[in-house]
Structures are given as C-alpha cells and as structure tokens.
Nucleic acid binder design. Structure first.
Lengths: 151, 151
DNA sequence: GTGCTTGCAAACGTTTTGCAGACTC
DNA sequence: GAGTCTGCAAAACGTTTGCAAGCAC
C-alpha cells in the first residue's frame, strides 16, 4: 500500500506535544488546560482509547473536564492529523496517535487487537485498485476474525 | 465487551423463503405475519439494508409492524444464518441475505459500496494466518477507501 | 393451553449540539 | 476586546429491554 492518503492534510508524521500545541496555535486555536492535558495523556499512553477512557485519564488529573470537551478536542485533533479513530468492533470508536499507519486485526471472540503494518496489504491494495478501481485505506475499520487462542 | 455468541454454525447456503420458514419452525419458532413479511421483503430486494429501511419496506405493506420487531427478527434470522450484518461506515449496520460471502469496499467520500469476492482476500488471509496466527473474516466490517470517481 | 412473539414505552450507550460564561491570545 | 473554548443540560442516534396482551402451534 502506498502513502496513507487520508482525507485532508498530507498527514504529517507524528510529533511531540509541543509541536502539536504549535499546530493548534497556527490555525488560530487556543491552548487551553484541558487540551494540553488531553495531549499529555495521549502522549503518555499511546494505545487505543475510547473517548470515555480518555476522559477518565484526563479527569484523574482534572475532574472538571467534561466528556463533551474530550469529544470536541478529539475531533479537532483528528482534523489536525494528530489523532485517528478506528472502529475495532461494536461499541465505541477508539482513538490513537497517528504514529505509523497500521491496520487492526480484532478477534471477534475475545476482542484482542493485533496491529499489522501496511506492507501486509500491498497485494490486496494493488488488486483492489486494478480490478475495482478502489484505493483502500484499511486503517479506519478493523479486519475481524479469530485469534490463535480463540480457535 | 459484548459476547458475540453468533457465528459457530457452519453457515448453510442461501435458501428460499419457504426453506427459511421451515427452518424457523424446526427450531420451535412461530411463523408470524411480520416475520413472513420481513422475509418477503428481504428476498424481494436482496441488497444491503439498515433496520430502519427494512422497517419502512415492511410497513409499506403492514404499518402496524414495530421497529423493535424488525430488530428482533433480524437478530433471529442472523442466528439462523439467513442474514448477516456488516458495518459499512458510520451509521447503522446493514443486513443482507447470506448469499455467497463477500467483502465490502466502501468509499469514505460518497459512501458507495462495492462487493468483492473472497478470492481477493486469499493472499491477505494466508499472510495473516502465517505471520500473526490470525484467521480473518472480513465480511463483518468494510474496507474503507476512495472509489474511482472520488479520487 | 403453552409459550413464542408482538406492540409499546422506556431505557440504553455513544455521540452531538445549543447556550451562556470563561478563557486565550 | 474578539473570538475560541468550556461546562452543562438536553437531545439525537441506533439499539435493546421489560412488560402485558396476542397469536401460532
């Protein structure tokens, strides 16, 4: 698979917290306490988190921060290319830093999620493009199946 | 994490309306007006439909049928292997008859959905199994990307 | 008659929105 | 001071559930 041609901005690589804050200021946004805190949490535990989980982490430090604020910030950060969300199954979407695109294999039995590099999808991507004129971007939805221990 | 007790059953091939009615009776279910009507609708327009769409189609004939009845019947029919649902993007799940398994390519721009045969995924499936010990079942979630006209 | 199925209403979990006040720049 | 961002409450959305009445067998 080629470049992850995601929506808008030619997705810049991952970055540091400070770089993100600059990015926010650059496009006219304000660096507020809850925004900075959310980013600290994200950089501190860069896995997949639902909005609810992120809220819990943020609220452990600053209980005042409201769930809807997390939703709005997460949306904003996604617009900036800092975050991505994926649907790893039923239930809430999960957000993660855009560090090296990867796809998720999620076990439909136990929910375990395995990350796989884009390279694995090169063949499928080529075929999809050739035969269906379709440019895949598998990051957004997980590929479901069964993991080794559930078979 | 919701327990997806579904699956298991070595999904029998598609069938006629009457076969499905027999199947329902076989396992002790009753053939009711709304159930038969839902099946008629499904066999008459065998595409992908959200529950809401199915309800509209059913209610065009029998307005009394309640949305929750469709939900319950669709769930039951999935248990019987007659239907499958997939998540083609954000928004509601879509149901379709289990006619020959296929995977969906969904354009994240215009929402168009393209059906692709399983054969296309053989290579990926083999790789996933070999390298990650993961048995993929891509039918449940769509592969997103951009279609020809949106690029 | 038994017990599966229905309509209804109400609740659910996730996400979005309108608003007045608070804050960043 | 202008304009962005926040907390809150409420609603929107798709889906599930408890219940009493209704229907298939």
């Amino acid at each position: 698979m080629t470049k992850s041609s995601r929506a808008a901005a030619a997705a810049p690589a991952p970055r540091s917290l400070d770089e993100v804050l600059d990015l926010i200021r650059d496009r006219g946004g304000r660096v507020t306490a809850s925004r900075r805190l959310l980013l600290e949490v994200l950089f501190a535990s860069p896995g997949h988190h639902s909005v609810e989980e992120l809220a819990k982490l943020v609220q452990a430090v600053e209980p005042e921060v409201h769930l809807s604020t997390i939703y709005r910030n997460v949306e904003e950060l996604e617009r900036l290319g800092v975050l991505e969300h994926s649907h790893l199954g039923h239930g809430p979407a999960t957000y993660h830093l855009t560090t090296g695109a990867h796809t998720h294999f999620v076990c439909e039995e136990c929910g375990t999620s395995i990350e796989a590099p884009d390279a694995l999808f090169e063949h499928l991507a080529a075929q999809a493009l050739e035969r269906y004129d379709f440019a895949i971007n598998p990051h957004h939805f997980a590929i479901v199946g069964r993991c080794a221990s559930c078979r």
